[in-house]
Design a protein around this nucleic acid. Structure first.
Lengths: 246, 246
DNA sequence: TTTTTTGGTTGACGTGGGTCAACGGGCGTG
DNA sequence: CACGCCCGTTGACCCACGTCAACCAAAAAA
């Protein structure tokens, strides 16, 4: 765990300048004076309980959200009931960018655990981007990173086999936990097998079997949501040399 | 076909204010005075011959591109040779947004036919976004739309069967041709079966078979790259009621 | 605590789409 | 205009993953 963040009363300013997520979040790379301006931008914080939604598809778009604590999934659903998890988000990551284009959200953002977000009113962000040099660039980078990430998921869904997908998923989670000061080898997944499956374009049974096979092969150790990567290099190798893939 | 665009010498300004793609492209929704400022932004034009690349993964990021004529595909590739087409782009659409995040491109943009793009230097765009009210918002919307589009592709790759994917692809192409003043019922695809397959996460044989089955069922008429949608409603129905899908 | 519900694992079996191969027609190149 | 290559089509076969079902553990509710 990291040093704890100074606690402010819910609804008060969040003080980006004092937040330890600064290097993962929107303010990354901004100067001290810019950071101070940014404190004006982040209005309130909002708590979202496990299983509750931060926003839903169709909600009018008003703000984007920076995750301060906890984690989320985003999913889109078709009329016929099918749904697709489009991403899992961790602390410091930005939610709600999909809403800008049509001024309403196109997916649901649901908390995987009790969580808290910083609310960034979009019109204020627009305004301040005109004034604060580094903010505009940083915001563009955040959006661009989302596009690049999505391309990675397409690659995964379009051209990898089940085990490769799961290996890529685990390595990605590991790297992100690590960037947040947690162990890269051992972590606790917050999503179910079904949610992982939806994200990876697989059924939960296939995900479960792949977990078991990885364990049998000594690559990982799993117990429910608790995962240990015993041989990360082995997992990487699995992705690179396709066994005769599509 | 639409009325032709006033021809300027290659390398001269492109004059957004006189371009008939205005309602599809970056300048959408901007005022006349803003449009005039925009003309400064678009420096040169660049021609790209069929099969040649506009940029490649790893190239330093300097500009984004608006397609003035022709069409492109973007693809990412893995070390082991596998590749994934992440999108097909038509006139008025913006290419290169992936490059902002890491200041270098992460995919290849390849012309599907002899094409021409407007080069928009990114540093100038940043600069002008500070000054021109509508430009910043419009640019954010373009990026956001790309994110939403990518989520749609994930949905397609993650939870649709082969025929549903192809139907969705055809309807999407139809709608985009239509928005550009071409027929929604009859059009000429510029990409190969293999490229369609890569985009849809299928093998070219599967794409070919799905085309044939659609033809047998009277939904479309295909001959090579020439496609006619005989029953668009039938195609839509196909997507909504999964036949027992994953 | 007990009960209930939800999430995860595993087995048996079926099938959609991948693989391999043959063939034919269009189109770009010379 | 003719050659050759690439592209698209189709068939036969196979396998990875989906489906269906039973069962168990963990967590939540009572």
């Amino acid at each position: 765990m990291r040093a704890s963040v100074p606690i402010t009363v819910n609804g008060l300013k969040s003080a980006c300048s004092q937040c330890n997520l600064v290097e993962l979040c929107l303010p990354f790379g901004m100067s001290d004076s810019e950071l101070n301006r940014l404190d004006e931008l982040v209005g309130a914080r909002r708590k979202v309980k496990r299983q509750q939604s931060l926003y839903r598809a169709g909600d009018p778009f008003e703000a984007i959200y920076a995750i301060r604590a906890g984690s989320f999934k985003t999913d889109v659903l078709l009329e016929d009931g099918r749904d697709q998890v489009t991403g899992f988000q961790m602390t410091g990551e930005i939610l709600g960018l999909d809403g800008i284009s049509a001024e309403s959200h196109t997916c649901n953002a649901i908390a995987l655990e009790d969580s808290e977000v910083c609310v960034i009113a979009y019109d204020k962000l627009e305004q301040m981007s005109h004034e604060v040099e580094g903010l505009q660039l940083q915001f563009h980078k955040v959006m661009s990173r989302e596009i690049v990430r999505d391309h990675g998921v397409m690659m995964l869904l379009g051209s990898m086999r089940a085990e490769e997908r799961l290996a890529a998923f685990l390595l990605n989670m590991s790297q992100r936990f690590n960037a947040r000061g947690f162990s890269a080898q051992e972590f606790h997944l917050r999503m179910t097998r079904e949610e992982i499956g939806s994200y990876l374009g697989l059924k939960l049974e296939t995900v479960s079997r792949a977990f078991s096979r990885f364990q049998d092969e000594g690559l990982i150790s799993v117990q429910q949501k608790h995962v240990q990567l015993l041989d990360p290099t082995g997992l990487k190798r699995l992705i690179q040399h396709q066994h005769g893939a599509r």
